[in-house]
Nucleic acid binder design. Structure first.
Length: 119
DNA sequence: CCTGTGACGTCCC
DNA sequence: TGGGACGCCACAG
């Protein structure tokens, strides 16, 4: 067994997905219903043992066409977080609009209205 | 091993 | 209300 921690997909726990941290993050994200959103930090606290940044990494690591509703995870300010590489933000906004989520004039989502928190 | 980076969050002014 | 500084930490090279 190699000492170094490899990537998620190649991790030694790959055949035990529910034991991997990323899988627990994904499981939590899957529970956000359509038309609602949660935040990176909130998911991190619910899962436990990880930071908001890691949740962002987990979302970035999702393969294209994943069943995980990553578009429902936004930042604590109610904004769609900007990718450094690529333009996935437009896609995310379009998907959320399609779910009936309203963006204010500054492009933000009202978490008091759409936030799926404490779940 | 060391360093830079990033789909974040909290504080402070 | 807004923007910058800083903390954070897994990953990749």
């Amino acid at each position: 067994m190699p000492k170094t921690t490899s990537s998620v997909a190649n991790s030694p726990n790959a055949n035990r997905p529910l034991d991997s941290l990323y899988a627990r993050i994904y499981a939590r994200v899957r529970r956000i219903p359509p038309g609602r959103v949660s935040t990176y930090g909130h998911i991190a606290r619910l899962v436990g043992g990880c930071s908001a940044r890691q949740v962002g990494y987990a979302m970035a690591a999702l393969p294209e066409g994943s069943r995980v509703p990553w578009q429902r995870v936004i930042n604590a300010k109610g904004e769609i977080s900007r990718r450094r590489h690529g333009n996935g933000t437009d896609n995310q906004r379009a998907q959320l609009l399609a779910e009936g989520i309203h963006f204010d004039f500054k492009g933000r989502i009202d978490l008091r209205r759409y936030g799926w928190l404490s779940h």
